[in-house]
Every structure is written in C-alpha cells, then in structure tokens.
Design a protein around this nucleic acid. Structure first.
Lengths: 330, 330
DNA sequence: TTGTAAGCGTTATCAA
DNA sequence: TTGATAACGCTTACAA
C-alpha cells in the first residue's frame, strides 16, 4: 500500500494524503477525516525507504559496541534503544568485538546507510572514518571511550576516580603489594583506570613495581594469563585491581585451579557490576558504573544535537565502590 | 558523493558507473578501470537509501529479541550479526523486554522499514502483525520461541529434552520432593520445559504436586518470589528446576537471605550457561544451549530463504546437562 | 484548500 | 559498449 494506491482509492492527490499525515491543519477537516479514516482502515504507514531518500535522513542511529556479550554494553544498548524508540528512531547495532578492523567495517556500513547519528565505543582507531561522519553532517557521540575527535559529545565514566576508589580501598585494607591488570593501552577508559590506579598508589607513597602492571584485552582469557604471570613472580601480589569484570572472571578461574583463595590469599576488586557479581564465590567487590544512565545520556545528547543544539558536551559519570567479599584485610 | 557527481567528473553516464560496479563484465575494460579508479579514489559507495528505494529491499534484517541484557540473547545477537555482516546485511535490533506490546511496536517499526527479514523471539502474541510480514514477502524466522505461525523457519532448543535431563538428574540424586519454576505459559519454550519436567517425573512415578509448580516471567524478581512461596510451604521441596538462569539468580538471592544452603538444603538446576555460572557460589548445575550455533543457524536459514529456498525448516538443537556444585545427593 | 511536479540516488530497460 | 530515461515512494515548493 503506497500513497498512490490510497490516492486512487480516495480520488485525491498523493500530496493531500501526505499532508493530512504530516501537517493535518493544512487540509480541510472533511478531507482530512476521509483520508485519516482510509489510512487507518488500511493500516497505511509511509515507507521508510521513500521518506529517507526524500528527506535525506533515516531516523536510524548506529551503535558500534565493543562487545555485545559484555553485560555493560548490553545494558547500555538497552537504554539507548529505549530512548531512541521513544523518539521515533531505530537502532542499528554493530558489534566490533574489541577489534579495530571490525569497527572500521561497521563504520563504513553506517556511513553507507546514511544513519542520522552514531554512538561509538571507539577502539581509538579509524579516525579518518569518523571524520567522514562529521563531514557528512552525521552526529557522533563517543561512548565509554574517547575516539580522540574534538568536536563530539562524549559520555564516559570518571575512570580515574573509579580506579582511585578501588586502589584506595585496597590500601586501606592494609595491602602494599598491589597489582593491576589494565585494559588495552589504546583505549581511553583503560588508560584512565591505569592512571587512577597509579596516582592513588603514589599518593599513598607505595611504589608501583613494573611487574605488577599487566595489560589484557578486556576478555576473560587475558585475565587468566595475566594472573598466571602474576603468580609466577617471586613475590606475588596480595591484592589486585582488574580493569573489567570479564578479565576478573579469568583471574577467578585461575585462582580456582591453583587453589589460591580469594580473598584470603588475594584481594580482588574489579570494574562493572552485572547481576551475577553478587552471587559469585566470593561475592565480588566492584566499581559500579551507572550504565543505564550513561546509555540514556548518550542517546539524549545525540537527540539534542540532531535538534540543533550546538555546544559540545562531555559527561563524566561518577562510579561507586561496592564492597563485598572478594577483598579483605591483609 | 553521488553517481551524478562521479559521472560529471568522468564524463560518462551514471548508468555506466552503476554497471561498472554491479556488472563489471558489461563495460569496456578501459572505461571500467577509469571508473573503478575514480570510485576508489573518492571512496565512493552507493547510498543505501537510493538503492533500497529502487530495489525494494533494504539488506537489513530485524531482530526482535526478548531481553538483550540476558546473556543468552546477547550471545545469539552476536552470532546473528556476524553471519549477517559476512553476507552484506545489517541488523536492526529491537528489544521487546518480554513484553507483548513492545514486541508489537517493534514489529510495526520493522514493517515500516521494509526490512528484508525478521528473526523473532516471539511472545506468542502479535500474530496478525507477523502475518503482514508474510504477505509483504518478508522472510520470517522464529527463534527460541514459536510464534504459532505455520510457514516459518524455526530455530529452537529441544526444551522437552533439556527439562528431562534436568529432572532426571535430580531424581537420580535421590530427590522426590522436586519443584519447578516455569516460564510464562504463553511462551512455547517455557511450555516445553514444563512438559519435559512433568513427563520425566511421571516416568519415574513421582507425583507432581500442584504447589510445586510455579510460574515466573524469566526475570530474577519472579524467581525470588517463587522461592519465597515454595519455602513457605509446609513441606518445601528438596530440589528445584528453574526454567532459566535469571530466575535462578532470584532463587539464589532468596536462599542467601534465608540461609538456605545450596545444595545442602536445596538442589538447583537451571537453564543457560553464561560465563559466570561456573564461578557462582556454588557453581551452578545447568542445562546448556548451543547459543551461538543457534544464532548462526537462524541467520543462515533466513539467508537461505532470501535466496529462494522454499521448504520450511525447523531445527531443534540438543541441550546438554553440565553438573556442577548446585545439585547434590538427597 | 488542493493538485502538479520536481527531486532525493539508485538500478534497469531500452535505444542508439 | 554506452547513454537517456523511467521508475521506486515520499515530501514539499509552487501554482491553481
């Protein structure tokens, strides 16, 4: 059912129908009702394809997400989609799998589709591609990680604060041999967490030994192998700050296998708080991000830009420390 | 950059460029190379909007997912997206939140967008809407749950078998007072799991007391309140089969609060196996679904249909029992 | 108040 | 082998 079909049936022009739908006040009450009745009767809805071509906007926003299986991103996507839907936008999901190349392909795709906006969890690469969005007038929002672009709205956590909270907690429990498993160096959030960790130890005058700073890729396996290295050290740490909970899962697996007791032998704090964290053995002490709020905020910022707000905004959300059973006094 | 721009620059017609891109063999080698070089130089890519209007297909597939925060669906979405991307399709995600009305809105939206296909985790409602897809030639695949439509490809788990495995495991451990928290009656997967549970108890000549069969909505809170009811019974069960792990989390929370020890006081089996299940306290005995395979299969079935395969296919994947620490001998 | 018609960027048919 | 041109379904000046 197209405008043409409907126009024939009602013996009015397609323009009238289109108007009756988008600017009802511009058409005579009698015609309007006749049209609206027919529209309703047939369940007519304008095709998005035709409209998009004409208006040059798709009312679709693309979300390039680092890892959809990660509870943090899944929750963020849910929040984004809720706000988008409430405002008549659809959400095209692209899973980049923490891979710069996959991110690039995703961005290309969104570019072709002429999406109205993009929420991007950037790997820090693909800057040229991102600039093409700016050039083509597509609104960009950095989420969780900064892409490095200047003129984009940004929604992140205050990662430095989060890591500080974690480190401080460990120090206050009496730990001095404190290690960290950081995220990839090219990710701004990982860098922030590492910086906060270092800063705090320094404030407490605790030297950070280089062998206590390891890097993973935010996936469980990398947590596992980092733990392996840590515990093959002459003097393994008594406390560990892990930059996300997926890597922490890897650490826990290693600890189980080697009968390293958490928190007796090793205190563990990590980032993110999926439902499960509290049911783990032991329940995990974590840094909580206000995930849903962050997702909503990103979409709202995007909508604001689409509606013409111009000044760039950066929102850094405050994290919270939730103490459970995985950390203990030295 | 559009075909027109490029045509002007190269002084050929837009038709030639379009052809050079889609049927290179039909254009003279010299022209072809000239065109391709310019295309490459400018990074020209046909706009999806124009193409979609002309070809009447969007190369987009819609996925209506029950709950994106649920690890099962997140993993399925990842698999679906991988296969889709590899075949030049994008994925529009709609989160229905286990809500029939939200599902309806999502389906409407996908209808407007003229998506090429839909993978639907049906709530069992919105049948008329689904029929509209069939009428408009949009390929439909039921995933995880059957919509009730006849002529659609279907990817599900063998839920009866999964529940049987769970129930049998409990019986073999010596339990006789076995309860279940089932999913919503209107969902085919929930019905299958309940049927498998009942069938197995019957086979073992164990009477299913009506007060041992409770219904939840697949979310943690409903697991919590069901557990509450179960333990206010004169004779609480010694074993419990929960139809998904989200509800199991609710049960665990209740057990913690009431100092009910799992598995000493209560053996617990549930469905689904997110990474965390093995790290919980105790590690959870679960029925595992081959999630990624199921997601891939759904997308492949969809692609098959898009390419003209006609016979309807139904795939029921076999579940696996993984015994961990949440179940024990009576 | 309504209709006519142009145009969004593409593909595909037909002639040249 | 190439080019002109007609759609695809919609919105929106502009004219009637």
């Amino acid at each position: 059912m197209t405008l043409d079909d409907l126009a024939k049936e009602l013996d009015v022009s397609i323009a009238t129908i289109s108007r009756a739908l988008s600017r009802p006040e511009q058409v005579a009450p009698r015609t309007r009702e006749r049209v609206l009745a027919a529209v309703h009767r047939h369940g007519y809805k304008p095709f998005g394809t035709g409209r998009s071509l004409r208006t040059q906007q798709t009312r679709t926003i693309g979300v390039v997400v680092s890892d959809i299986r990660n509870a943090f991103f899944a929750a963020a996507v849910k929040a984004i989609e809720d706000v988008a839907r409430a405002n008549g936008y659809s959400v095209l999901i692209c899973n980049a799998d923490e891979d710069r190349q996959k991110e690039g392909i995703a961005l290309q795709l969104l570019l072709d589709r002429k999406v109205s906006g993009v929420i991007n969890c950037s790997t820090g690469a693909n800057l040229e591609l991102l600039r093409m969005f700016e050039k083509s007038g597509t609104v960009l929002v950095d989420f969780d990680r900064e892409s490095g672009l200047n003129n984009v709205d940004t929604v992140v956590l205050d990662n430095v604060l989060g890591a500080s909270l974690a480190a401080q907690h460990l120090v206050e429990l009496g730990h001095r041999a404190i290690a960290t498993i950081a995220g990839p160096k090219h990710l701004s959030n990982a860098r922030g967490r590492l910086a906060g960790f270092r800063k705090t130890l320094q404030e407490f005058k605790i030297a950070t030994r280089p062998e206590y700073v390891l890097f993973g890729n935010f996936k469980p396996e990398s947590g596992y192998s980092a733990a392996q290295r840590l515990f093959s050290l002459a003097k393994p740490p008594t406390a560990l700050f892990v930059a996300n909970i997926e890597m922490a899962a890897g650490v826990i697996q290693f600890a189980r296998e080697k009968k390293i007791s958490i928190p007796k032998d090793l205190s563990l704090v990590s980032f993110d708080d999926p439902l499960w964290a509290q049911f783990m053995d032991p329940p995990l002490t974590v840094i909580v991000q206000p995930t849903e709020e962050m997702g909503e905020c990103a979409m709202e910022l995007l909508l604001g830009r689409l509606r013409g707000r111009s000044p760039v905004q950066t929102k850094a959300f405050p994290p919270r420390l939730v103490v459970r059973g995985s950390t203990a006094k030295r």
